[in-house]
Computed example of a mutant assay.
Amino acid sequence: MSLASHLEELQRKHGDIERELDEAMLHPSVDDLEIANLKRRKLALKDEIEKLRTLPTTH
């Protein structure tokens, strides 16, 4: 998998989690622990995306 396609996949997953988080926050029945878990997963993906973006290119 190329770096560009890996970044695209991570960004897609980040967007999916963001939508899931937005939906969960609209429903008061969703457990706060579940919301915290979604936020943690979203942040981890964001960190990985940023780390990959800052890798030096070797051309």
Rank of each mutant, 00 (worst) to 15 (best):
M1E: 12
S2N: 15
S2L: 08
S2C: 09
L3W: 05
H6T: 13
H6M: 12
H6A: 13
L7Q: 07
E8P: 00
E8Y: 12
K13D: 12
K13H: 05
H14T: 11
H14C: 09
G15L: 11
D16V: 14
D16W: 09
D16N: 15
D16G: 10
I17A: 00
I17K: 03
R19G: 08
E20T: 13
E20K: 05
L21E: 04
L21P: 06
D22H: 13
E23V: 02
M25Q: 15
L26W: 04
H27W: 11
P28C: 10
V30F: 06
D31Y: 02
I35N: 02
I35Y: 00
I35W: 03
I35K: 01
A36E: 12
A36S: 12
A36M: 09
N37P: 00
N37G: 00
L38K: 07
R40A: 10
R40L: 09
R41Q: 07
R41S: 03
K42T: 07
L43K: 13
A44C: 07
L45G: 00
K46N: 05
K46F: 12
K46D: 12
D47L: 14
E50Y: 07
E50D: 12
E50K: 12
K51S: 08
L52H: 09
L52E: 14
L52V: 12
R53W: 01
T54P: 00
L55D: 11
L55C: 00
L55I: 06
P56V: 09
H59V: 08
